[in-house]
Amino acid sequence: MTAAAEDQVVPGLYDISAELYHQDPIPGGSLSSTGIRRITDCPARFKYLLDHPEPYKPEFEFGTAAHTVILGNGPELVVVDAKRWDTDETKARVAAIRASGNVPLKPEARQRIDDMAEALARHPEASDLLTPGSGIAEQSAFWQDDNGIWHRARFDWLRPDDIVDYKTARSVHPDAVAKAVNEHGYHQQQAWYRRIAVELGLIPPSGAFKFVLQEKQPPYLVTVAELDFPAQVIGAELNDRALYTYAMCLSTGHWPAYSEGTTHISLPPWVERKYAQENS
């Protein structure tokens, strides 16, 4: 896909830059996994962020760099070996690196990412899933549903029979992973990506989706996770509801907030249970 061909997009898999993908090359716009999760949370917030894109956040650079090293595809990583990053000279150099589409890293950050890659290579299942040549990295997919809504996804690692999504995390303890899935909507991301991949014939309907999660601090523990059936069903249903909401908002021009009247708030159930136990 090129800028000149943006008005002739057809459903399929494209090897395009992350920048072009995030700019959304579909005329009239398309929905991403992030977008569908934002609509699920609040249509008004989704519309605001659509009209006012979030500014660049340097804190995302470590994750981007880790993806580049682990998956073998991404922007160039440039080590900036300066004692201080707050001098005018260093700030100008860092800004120039970012402006060219590359990622500046402190030496210790680059070493940490290399150590993470070595730790992941020692994990039997994760290293097997991400074996060079077993899949293709950072591919963008576009698909249009029967209602004319374009869906888009950018796969970390697309294999013939499954999708692998790599994420860095503070903790890969199963309880922490479950919390992250719920908090960040990974179950919706999985359902969104799988549907696009299946509809485009990129994976079979039985194709798996696996998360490879890795801690960002030594010893850089790794967990390979699959969502259970209820989580998959809930993710797909939330996406269907959000698609309906999106279509309604487009047709009416009204993007509702959390509530448009007085909302009655209860304490969390555990607070009520604790109070009842202590005062019974």
Rank of each mutant, 00 (worst) to 15 (best):
A96E: 13
T64K: 08
L77C: 06
I149T: 14
N73M: 08
P104M: 02
A44P: 00
N147E: 15
A109I: 05
E54L: 15
V78L: 06
P124K: 12
S134Q: 14
G63W: 11
A121F: 04
A82G: 04
G72A: 03
D146K: 12
V69A: 06
T64Q: 12
E108M: 08
Q144W: 04
P53E: 12
G72P: 06
T68F: 03
A117W: 09
A117R: 15
D88Q: 13
G101P: 08
D115M: 10
Q144G: 04
Q144K: 14
S140E: 00
R152K: 14
D115E: 15
L120D: 01
Y56I: 07
R84C: 03
E125D: 13
G135K: 01
D145K: 12
V79P: 01
P55N: 10
R154Y: 12
A66P: 01
E61C: 05
F142D: 00
W157G: 01
S100P: 07
R45K: 15
V78M: 06
P107E: 06
G101Y: 09
S134H: 14
D128T: 12
L71V: 02
V94K: 05
A109G: 02
A121T: 09
T131E: 14
A66H: 00
V103H: 05
A109W: 07
C42A: 11
I113F: 02
V94H: 00
S134C: 07
D81P: 07
A141H: 11
D156G: 05
A95P: 05
E54H: 14
S127N: 11
E89C: 05
H151A: 08
R45G: 08
Q139I: 11
E76G: 07
P104W: 05
D156W: 13
D88W: 03
K91L: 08
L105T: 00
L105A: 01
R154Q: 12
N73C: 11
A82I: 08
P124F: 07
P75F: 07
D128C: 06
K91V: 02
H123M: 03
T68V: 07
V79F: 08
S100R: 13
I136M: 09
A153F: 09
E108D: 11
L77K: 10
A137E: 00
T131V: 08
A109C: 04
V80Q: 04
G148F: 09
T87V: 04
P132W: 09
R98V: 12
H52P: 01
P53I: 08
R122S: 08
A95V: 06
G74W: 08
A99H: 11
A44Y: 04
S100M: 09
K91N: 10
A117N: 11
L49Q: 15
V94F: 00
P58C: 06
